[in-house]
Amino acid sequence: MTQRTQTPVTPRPFLKWAGGKSQLIEQYKPLFPKGFKNYYEPFLGGGAVFFYLHQQFTGFNAFLSDINPELINVYCCVRDDVETLIDLLDKHQLKHGKIHYYQVRGKLFRRKKHRAARLIYLNKTCFNGLYRENSKGEFNVPMGRYKNPKICNADLLRSVSEALTKAEINLQPFDAVLEQAKTADDFVYFDPPYYPLNPTSNFTAYSRYSFNEESQKKLRDTFAELSDRNVRVMLSNSDCEFIRNLYKDFHIHTVYATRSINSKGKKRGKISEVVVTSY
Rank of each mutant, 00 (worst) to 15 (best):
E70S: 14
D186C: 12
A224H: 13
F250L: 06
Q23A: 14
R111K: 15
P13S: 08
G144Y: 00
P69G: 08
P192D: 09
R158K: 12
P142V: 06
F174N: 04
R110S: 14
D228F: 03
F223V: 07
K113T: 15
S201K: 04
E214M: 08
F203N: 05
I252F: 05
F223W: 10
D249A: 14
E225Y: 01
N202R: 12
S260P: 00
R158N: 07
S278K: 03
L130E: 04
S210E: 14
V82Y: 00
T165M: 07
K124L: 03
I67T: 10
H54K: 13
G46N: 05
F127E: 02
E273R: 00
L31K: 06
L178V: 08
Y52Q: 10
S260L: 12
L171N: 08
D228A: 13
V160F: 02
D186S: 11
A176T: 11
A167L: 09
T204L: 00
L246C: 11
S227P: 02
S227D: 13
R4M: 11
K37R: 13
L88V: 05
Y131V: 01
L94E: 12
V275T: 03
G19N: 01
P8H: 08
T258K: 13
P13K: 04
N262G: 12
Y247L: 06
K98E: 15
N140T: 01
F187E: 09
I67K: 11
G97N: 15
L85E: 05
N212F: 02
L156R: 03
L108E: 14
M143C: 12
V188K: 05
T10S: 11
R111L: 14
S272M: 02
S215E: 15
E83L: 09
P8K: 10
K270Q: 14
S236D: 05
Q216K: 00
H251G: 00
D81I: 03
C126G: 03
G35P: 01
T125M: 01
N73I: 02
F63K: 07
K91G: 09
T183H: 07
G19M: 03
I25F: 05
D175Q: 15
P199F: 05
Y40I: 06
Q27Y: 10
K218S: 11
K218W: 04
I151M: 05
S135L: 10
F139G: 02
S210C: 07
F43G: 00
L122T: 07
S278P: 04
R132V: 02
H253W: 11
M1I: 10
R232C: 10
C152S: 05
G19K: 01
Y39C: 05
N134E: 06
S263Y: 01
Q93A: 14
A181M: 09
D87K: 13
K95C: 07
K147R: 15
E213V: 11
V255H: 02
V49A: 04
N237S: 07
V274A: 00
N148Y: 13
A62V: 06
D81T: 12
L119T: 06
S238I: 11
